[in-house]
Design a binder for these strands. Structure first.
Lengths: 260, 260
DNA sequence: GAGTGGTCTAGACCACGCG
DNA sequence: GCGTGGTCTAGACCACTCA
């Protein structure tokens, strides 16, 4: 910075408008700026972001302030710090966070032993959003969405039947072939091919009985109890980007959740 | 501290033993010391812990180091910071974290509108731990445990049927009457009457079909799909203190989970 | 050895809660 | 007005990675 012993910059920058306290610490503002660059794709998933010193210089704040901003981004799993190497835009492709959003675990052993799922794409088509789908994805009824139905099998056993819907505007050209042949989690495909990174999700879980078609696809008797998992996934800025409705077999697997 | 410009204390204090890197930052050590005091009950749930300055003086470190230790404890929900007031030992009694471990939400409205659950204690007895229960609670088969069965109703509708097991040694004298008449969450009763604070839990969730007795207790037809939630709750130090097996109706409620 | 994130300190000032 | 936690800075040194 120019002069030493400078008074702290006016970090309560936002004008104190009526009705809004509108005080925002400097590090929150820096966090917002970094977030903007992430959204804008200035740094792609897996790439390093500038070092703390560089960012401090760019934003004219101390390293400690940048550090606190990055700390929060790391806590939200938007970036990953690696000592001695740098800070990286996080991605669903990393080994230890692969299948971050899939909480279904085999009762015995772990997912490594079990190996990756076998995907069968049953359907992949462009349709018009129903009122319900449109509401969830913050679109208008009748807007184009891509609808996919698939079955995931673990160790040869069909275990998950799911449908998902994606905004047509963001996933132009997504094909059944792509979905069937890409390697790794589907969310990695979304990152690489469509530049859409899911950063968080909300799930609503219920127990339901399999109807005839569902039972057939999962090789179960009709009426078998299934876990219904409705997931709404968001990109940056709380923009919903995928609605997914899954039915999970839970006779050999369970949904695992850690509370704290 | 005594002398200014002192070199930093040997914060890699732990002896570098063979095979273990055993480097632990100062703030982690401080965190451990605070944790010990929490476990020992030096400060009770709801009480304030000493101020950051006091702790810094006690441990002969800077306020910043204490701050970082407390930051982590706060992130783990063991303490709650309140600006201008102090840092408090967290408790299940606080309004905004009540029912922290109960993720079942009404489909419409929130839990405030719905009001508190009505508890019916069906059973509360001292029994000997089965092999399975003993393993989960890290006891020996045949050790005394308290077994409770109860039904929770929301708005008059029986919604949760659950059994839970507690180590007999830690819950001496727990009675059906206590369980029926106490106010607020049962985990608050555990804190106040038995000094046991649950700090985290792991849940395994499945879909199951109600058998005849279960169906009767929940006023449902036999075979109705139910969410099976097995929860293992831990106190400080990763000591398991409760095994709970719940069956949740999910026709008017859902299990809500946020992923990030 | 250079560069990155990680730790630690000391001191200043701000926002909040309460008497 | 005082004490609390919250923010910000500047500078030093440590641990890790890689060339």
């Amino acid at each position: 910075m120019a002069a030493p012993q400078m008074p702290p910059p006016d970090y309560a920058a936002s004008a104190p408008e009526v009705g809004t306290p509108a005080f925002s610490p400097l590090y929150q503002q820096i966090k917002g700026l970094i977030l903007q660059s992430l959204q804008a794709g200035e740094w792609k998933p897996g790439e390093a972001i500038p070092s703390e010193m560089e960012l401090a210089a760019r934003f004219r704040v101390s390293q400690g302030t940048v550090r606190k901003a990055i700390d929060e981004l790391a806590a939200e799993n938007l970036v990953v710090r690696r000592q001695g190497k740098g800070t990286f835009v996080s991605t669903h492709a990393e080994q230890h966070v692969r299948y971050r959003f899939l909480k279904l675990m085999p009762d015995a052993g772990d997912r490594e032993e079990e190996g990756p799922a076998t995907r069968s794409i049953l359907d992949c088509k462009r349709v018009r959003a129903s009122a319900e789908i449109a509401r969830a994805l913050q679109l208008r009824t009748g807007d184009a969405v891509i609808q996919v139905r698939r079955v995931l099998a673990f160790g040869g056993v069909p275990t998950i039947l799911e449908d998902f819907w994606l905004p047509g505007a963001n996933f132009k050209g997504l094909s059944a072939d792509q979905l069937a042949t890409h390697v790794g989690p589907t969310y990695v495909l979304f990152e690489h091919e469509f530049g859409v990174r899911m950063v968080r999700a909300e799930e609503k879980i219920r127990a339901v009985a399999a109807d005839a078609p569902q039972a057939a696809l999962l090789a179960l008797p009709q009426g078998a109890p299934l876990l219904s998992v409705e997931r709404l996934s968001y990109t940056y800025n709380d923009v919903p980007m995928e609605l997914r409705r899954g039915l999970y077999r839970t006779d050999t697997h369970h949904y695992r959740n850690d509370l704290s």
